[in-house]
């Protein structure tokens, strides 16, 4: 009995310490400046002002569209390229297949610190600085998704492919019409991982995007928080942070289980 009480009080305490800061953030963003710093559950002096100010100071709506565009397009490309490469590695035989597999492993262990500066210079030389291309193309393929697709395709029976071949389907049709529907969980995992990673990425946009109309949300919110445009007003910064958090939290509330499983599978890659 005592153990049970202890167990639940520990869990509740932990849960509170993870949830309460978010609740505080939400109510602080809806409170007047002078009541910030209160330990509160509900907004004090309720006001929308902070949000109004955020939208007049920075083009957050535009940044939202940029983020959404970049995340959706890139996720699509990652699925496309991952499925193609993963399929070839899983089901086809060709010279150099093993080399490619090892290159992928190598890429995954390579710290990004090495490639950061040269990649920036590539962007500059291609004239992609301040364009969506700089945000999309470098992320259009990722090693983890290739490996996950490879694993998923390997688990499927050869008969599925053979039957499709007899019907005269080409390889692309086999991949995208016959096989993909059978590995939906993997597709979902990759979608979630890629989308979340892109939505939250702040470092790379900071490096390649200087034009405010092309900035993504995390970048804009970071700059807003570091720079002087908030004029030292905390509530406004917090409101900007809330706006950045809301889309992904909403998605999380809908696809909670999938989020957790996807993240766990990325953690288990070693």
């Amino acid at each position: 009995m005592l153990q049970t009480i202890l167990k639940y009080s520990l869990l509740v305490l932990a849960a509170l310490s993870f949830i309460y800061p978010f609740i505080w953030m939400l109510s602080a963003s809806l409170s007047s400046e002078s009541s910030l710093g209160e330990l509160t559950l509900l907004p004090v002096d309720f006001t929308w002002n902070n949000y109004v100010t955020v939208f007049t100071k920075i083009p957050l709506d535009r940044a939202f569209l940029n983020s959404a565009l970049v995340a959706v397009l890139t996720t699509g490309l990652v699925l496309l390229s991952g499925a193609m490469v993963g399929y070839a590695l899983a089901r086809l035989d060709f010279v150099g297949k093993n080399i490619i597999f090892y290159l992928i492993i190598f890429t995954m262990t390579l710290p990004f610190q090495i490639t950061l500066i040269p990649n920036y210079i590539t962007m500059v030389k291609l004239g992609w600085v301040d364009t969506y291309l700089a945000l999309i193309v470098p992320f259009a393929l990722n090693s983890l998704s290739v490996l996950l697709f490879r694993q998923a395709f390997q688990s499927l029976p050869q008969a599925l492919i053979d039957a499709a071949r007899i019907d005269g389907a080409g390889e692309l049709r086999i991949i995208f019409q016959v096989l993909i529907p059978n590995i939906f969980p993997t597709v979902l995992t990759i979608t979630i991982l890629t989308f979340m990673g892109l939505w939250n990425e702040a470092l790379w946009p900071l490096i390649v995007i200087r034009d405010e109309s092309t900035m993504t949300m995390p970048q804009l919110v970071t700059l807003f928080s570091v720079g002087g445009r908030a004029e030292g007003q905390l509530g406004v910064k917090i409101a900007a942070a809330v706006m950045l958090a809301i889309p992904i939290v909403v998605l999380y509330l809908f696809f909670q289980k999938h989020f957790i499983r996807s993240m766990a599978s990325s953690g288990l890659k070693d």
Binding site: V124, G127, V129, D130, L206, I209, R210, D211, E212, M215
Partner: peptide, 17 residues
């Protein structure tokens, strides 16, 4: 000048490009 983090960086990028 295109709005961004700092005008210095925008000028640098334009010089490089």
């Amino acid at each position: 000048i295109p709005e961004g983090q700092s005008s210095e960086e925008i000028i640098l990028a334009s010089v490089v490009g």
